[in-house]
Deep mutational scan, measured.
Amino acid sequence: MSIQHFRVALIPFFAAFCLPVFAHPETLVKVKDAEDQLGARVGYIELDLNSGKILESFRPEERFPMMSTFKVLLCGAVLSRVDAGQEQLGRRIHYSQNDLVEYSPVTEKHLTDGMTVRELCSAAITMSDNTAANLLLTTIGGPKELTAFLHNMGDHVTRLDRWEPELNEAIPNDERDTTMPAAMATTLRKLLTGELLTLASRQQLIDWMEADKVAGPLLRSALPAGWFIADKSGAGERGSRGIIAALGPDGKPSRIVVIYTTGSQATMDERNRQIAEIGASLIKHW
């Protein structure tokens, strides 16, 4: 067993022997301040990774656009098919120029040779490549099948209805392509620590998230040296922004954090800054 596999296998073990965790309302004060600064709703939840206990939450059962955070769930569904012998990570998928959609920095470079399922998941999570996500959605049967996968996990809230990039439209009061912070946090925890996926697939999923290259201005910008984070960000229309993450000190994750916002007129930089400040408060009061 590799060191990384050992780390993920012992996530519940280490967490069980940690000192009790206590909620700190100071972080919620910052979440509410972010709402004021952005002029928009902000949803927040913080779960203990081992027990699933909610440590703090704000608007945990209000719907927010998922945006690209759905790509972690998508690759979880792909990995479940791999575990069941219905898919192979090494299978190569070929596609054409007509398949390319807006923001496809990886797939646009491989029109000639195609990409493997493993490479597509890596591109979808680490670079948020939209064509990679659409190609992977095709392998599982489309958005409705991802929703069905989530329902089978016990998540009857999260739903995907459309493809990239239309799913980022974020129309107010439109339930399409949305989740709730509580539902997303619980589902992410199941994917990373539950028995739904094999140990190898859980490790692969967290490795992809740990290698995320496009979430630097968010929670990662607030992390002290030595902290662990595996995350996936999302951005959408109407001032929408979000991030889902597993993080913790001492090089291992111990909490799940989900943050979503929508309806702001603020710039992307300002949305990023507010999420980073929430992260800084979380870490300060850990």
Rank of each mutant, 00 (worst) to 15 (best):
D174E: 00
Y95A: 08
L247R: 12
E35I: 06
E102M: 00
T262Y: 13
M66W: 06
P172W: 08
A280D: 07
A132D: 05
I275T: 08
E61G: 01
A183W: 11
E237L: 10
K232V: 15
H285Y: 03
S122V: 12
T69H: 09
L191Y: 13
V257K: 15
G248R: 07
N134E: 01
R241G: 14
L120A: 05
H94T: 04
N130C: 09
T69R: 03
T27N: 09
K71I: 12
A211V: 10
T126K: 14
A170I: 04
G251W: 10
I229P: 10
G226E: 07
T139Y: 02
A148R: 08
S264T: 08
V101Y: 11
S254K: 10
K213S: 06
A185E: 12
N130V: 11
S57E: 03
R63I: 02
M66D: 06
I45M: 13
G239L: 10
F64R: 03
G85V: 06
R202G: 01
R238A: 01
A245N: 12
I229K: 13
Y260T: 10
E169L: 01
L196M: 08
C75M: 00
W163R: 12
K252N: 08
T158S: 13
P105R: 04
A40V: 09
S281K: 03
E169Y: 00
A133M: 04
I283A: 08
T138G: 12
G85D: 04
A133E: 01
F70C: 00
T187R: 00
I278W: 08
P25C: 00
T187F: 00
T262M: 02
L219M: 13
A280K: 00
T116I: 02
T131R: 08
P217S: 12
S51A: 06
G142D: 01
E119D: 13
G76F: 07
Q265R: 09
S254F: 12
R273Y: 09
V258W: 03
K30D: 15
G141H: 00
T112P: 06
L38M: 00
V29C: 06
W286D: 05
D99A: 10
N173P: 00
M127V: 08
T179A: 15
S240V: 12
T187Q: 01
T138F: 08
A235I: 15
A183S: 01
E277M: 10
P224V: 05
T138W: 12
F228H: 15
Q274G: 09
D48E: 07
E46T: 06
Y95W: 15
A84I: 03
M66E: 02
G263P: 00
D269Y: 06
N272C: 07
N98I: 07
R189S: 14
S128N: 14
P172A: 04
L28K: 01
I278K: 05
G194D: 04
G43C: 02
T112I: 04
S80C: 06
E46D: 02
R81E: 02
E166Y: 05
P25Q: 01
F58C: 02
A215I: 07
Q97P: 04
V257N: 15
H151E: 02
D155P: 07
F149I: 06
I275V: 10
E56L: 09
T267S: 08
S51V: 02
A222T: 15
A215P: 15
N272Q: 09
G39M: 12
F149V: 08
R59D: 02
V29H: 12
M180P: 14
P60E: 04
M209C: 14
G251M: 12
E277A: 11
F149L: 08
E46H: 10
R255F: 10
A215E: 15
E175Q: 11
H151A: 05
R162Y: 01
S122F: 11
L196C: 06
I244D: 11
M268K: 15
T178G: 14
D36C: 05
Q97I: 01
S264R: 00
T138C: 04
G194I: 08
R118K: 13
L120M: 05
A211Y: 13
S240H: 08
P60D: 08
P65D: 04
W208E: 09
S57C: 00
S80Q: 08
Q265H: 10
R41Q: 11
A235M: 14
V214K: 15
M67W: 11
D33R: 08
G154H: 02
D129V: 01
C121F: 00
P181Y: 05
N152P: 05
A133W: 02
P217R: 04
A77N: 11
R220D: 10
T112C: 01
G154D: 11
S240N: 03
A245M: 12
M153K: 06
H94L: 11
P143Y: 02
I243K: 07
K213Q: 01
W208T: 04
E164M: 13
L47A: 02
R159T: 05
A222M: 13
Q86R: 10
G279A: 14
E270L: 02
R238M: 07
V31G: 05
L38H: 02
A124N: 07
L192S: 13
P172V: 04
D269L: 09
P224N: 11
K232F: 15
R220M: 07
V78I: 10
R202E: 01
S68D: 14
R63F: 13
A230T: 11
D99G: 08
L73G: 00
L146H: 01
F70Y: 15
W227M: 12
Q86C: 03
K144L: 05
L135V: 08
A124Y: 04
L188V: 13
W286Q: 12
D174Q: 05
L100C: 07
D161M: 01
A132E: 04
S233E: 15
L219D: 14
P143K: 03
S57P: 03
E210A: 14
A84K: 04
I93C: 00
T179C: 12
T27R: 07
D207W: 00
E102V: 00
A170D: 11
K53L: 08
K213C: 10
L38W: 00
T126A: 11
M209V: 12
F64N: 06
D113G: 07
I259S: 10
K252Y: 14
L28F: 12
R41V: 08
M268Q: 14
N173H: 07
L120Q: 04
G39K: 12
F64K: 05
V157E: 09
L120E: 08
E87W: 05
C121V: 01
L136R: 06
T107M: 07
P217A: 01
L150R: 00
I244E: 11
V157Q: 14
A40R: 04
G142C: 00
L192N: 14
R159V: 06
Y44V: 07
A84N: 02
G85I: 02
K30L: 15
G242V: 05
L160G: 12
H156M: 10
D269N: 10
N50R: 10
